[in-house]
Design a protein around this nucleic acid. Structure first.
Length: 257
DNA sequence: ATGGTTGCAGCGCAA
């Protein structure tokens, strides 16, 4: 049984104590990290390698940055979406433990209709094309990350307040739905089809976590070969309760290949 | 509540 997690850490250096204790207490086999916010030469490799993880990095100063940690050897590592010119470090892919995995940090978009929103849609368009190609490989494929999109109003604590706002607009939801309809399974939704108020991100402001004012924007999307072997998927809310927590909680699935 | 908080770099910007 392989355990695969995705987690937006919001700075690997600030979150390192939480990451290390989490890796010690309930070690996933594969960890897909987003928003590491550090250049590769400053990534805290030694502390993580000591816990028997291999590491693949695509970092950037101050913003963005993605990484893959794996108990298995990491092969065929690629960075960036093929065919998409992007100076921001938001995509890394590798083959590990009999699976192909990717850690994806979709642009936030800031505001519907803005230049950054256009960039978000462009990123999603190229991601769609790349996933089309990946699905022809007929592999166990796990696309984890901060997609910065709620699939539906069920994934929003206050759909009226968020109606057509960023992370919830029809246009970006359609882009995500198109990607899923290529043949992917939303692992958390598949394991908990009727669960309500099931979120992965809570704003730091205004006591959002304490009030469970959250959104579900972090996803593990699985190819049919991976989905057939899916045994569980959960949100690790406990990580969001800690002092100096990331604003995102990890999403973890178990796959019995 | 065009507010609120966090992380970064170095006090404005992105989220």
């Amino acid at each position: 049984m392989a355990k695969i997690a995705t987690w937006n850490v919001n700075s690997i250096r600030t979150r390192l104590p939480h990451l290390l204790s989490w890796l010690k207490e309930s070690p996933p086999d594969v960890v897909l990290l987003q928003e590491t916010k550090v250049m590769d030469d400053q990534f805290p490799r030694d502390e993580i390698e000591t816990l028997n993880y291999n590491i693949a990095l695509y970092g950037q100063k101050t913003y963005n940055g993605v990484a893959i940690l794996s108990k298995f050897p990491l092969e065929d590592v690629t960075t960036g979406i093929p065919g998409f010119e992007d100076e921001q470090a938001r995509y890394i892919e590798a083959v590990t433990g009999g699976m192909r995995v990717a850690s994806i940090y979709v642009p936030n978009g800031t505001e519907v209709g803005s230049d950054k929103f256009a960039y978000k849609l462009d990123f999603l368009k190229h991601l769609y094309t790349h996933i089309q190609t990946l699905l022809t490989y007929d592999e166990a494929l796990i696309l984890g990350g901060d997609y910065n999109i709620t699939p539906s109003d069920e994934d929003v604590y206050d759909p009226k307040e968020w109606h057509e706002k960023i992370l919830c607009s029809t246009e970006e939801r359609n882009a995500l739905r198109s990607i899923i309809y290529l043949g992917l399974t939303d692992a958390l939704k598949a394991m908990h089809p009727d669960k309500k108020e099931f979120y992965t991100w809570w704003d730091y402001r205004a006591g959002a976590f304490q009030n469970n004012f959250g959104l579900r924007i972090d996803h593990l999307l699985l190819s049919p070969q991976a989905a057939d072997c899916l045994k569980s998927c959960e949100v690790d809310r406990a990580m969001r309760t800690l002092e100096k927590a990331s604003d995102h909680a990890p999403v973890i699935c178990e796959i019995d290949l």
